[in-house]
Design a binder for these strands. Structure first.
Length: 266
DNA sequence: CGAATTTGACCAGCGC
DNA sequence: GCGCTGGTCAAATTCG
């Protein structure tokens, strides 16, 4: 899986990790090496093949299935319960959600960091950890603790470069960033190191900015261009919402209004 | 004591 | 059909 994920990468400067909180260790190590790549259900289809250095063509297939998502889930649960009245245990266990093929838009970031769990302003609860194939490092599964917010994220280390943390977000937050995060919101701001202001190419020089979220308005066909134009690699670090105002969820969540660091003191 | 994490088990999808 | 792998659940445990 991670293999495929790598096929779709876009250079970006996502929210790095400020480190506030957990560990100061390695913060210095933090490099603006951060990439983001969108993952979509059919991404494997659009990939151009050469991972690490060919233009990552991506299909911003927006899920467009958020609705049946929850419904399905619910339905399933109900079904399970209904039908497994006696075998409570089995029923309970089988009430997985895992929509057939997650249509949820996914965005992954590769961040060079010592710490696994990058602070992004939200509260996450870990609900699982799994050893992944092709990697000596386990993958952790987190879920947004806010009720009604089904955003999930996965955190794993690159099997190629252990110093790189791959964080994959799935879904969109439907709430603002918790006010108090390990003290204060400044933490969130602090989560964006200056380094991210200057995205730099990594991995074979791939140089794409992430086209975050699904952009229904943007024809995925080589939407790279579209995203590109919207970005400014400059210090502004504007995330490419491609004009959309509804679909930029993820990043908006990360940057409620304007990137915190823009207002930071030098 | 409540919230978060850990960890083993379970289940579904996929390839052979 | 079987085995492997990824993803999730939930009881137990730890932490604040």
């Amino acid at each position: 899986m991670s293999d495929e994920m790598f096929k779709d990468l876009f250079l970006s400067s996502p929210f790095g990790y400020g480190g506030l909180g957990d560990s100061e260790t390695g913060l210095d190590e933090y490099e603006s090496l951060a990439r983001a790549f969108e993952l979509s259900s059919d991404y494997s289809n659009e990939i151009s093949g050469t991972p690490m250095n060919s233009s990552a063509s991506f299909s911003s297939s927006d899920a467009g299935a958020d609705e049946d998502d929850s419904l399905k889930d619910k339905d399933k649960q109900i079904k399970d319960m209904d039908d497994g009245g006696e075998s409570s245990k089995t029923a309970a266990k089988s009430k997985k959600k895992v929509e057939k093929k997650e249509r949820e838009p996914r965005v992954a970031f590769m961040t060079k960091s010592e710490v696994d769990h990058l602070e992004d302003g939200y509260r996450w609860r870990k609900y699982g950890q799994k050893a992944v194939k092709n990697s000596a490092y386990p993958r952790s599964y987190y879920r947004c603790t806010t009720q009604k917010c089904g955003v999930k994220k996965r955190v794993e280390r690159s099997y190629e470069d252990p110093s790189i943390v791959i964080t994959t977000y799935e879904g969109q937050h439907n709430h603002p960033i918790p006010a108090t995060l390990r003290g204060n919101l400044s933490a969130a701001s602090g989560a964006f190191p200056p380094s991210m202001l200057a995205p730099m190419p990594v991995v074979g020089g791939v140089r794409y900015l992430p086209q975050l979220m699904n952009n229904t308005s943007v024809n995925n066909n080589q939407a790279v261009g579209g995203g590109e134009s919207v970005y400014s690699q400059s210090s502004s670090f504007n995330y490419p919402y491609n004009g959309r105002q509804q679909d930029y969820g993820l990043l908006q969540d990360i940057f409620p209004t304007a990137p915190p660091f823009l207002n930071r003191q030098p």
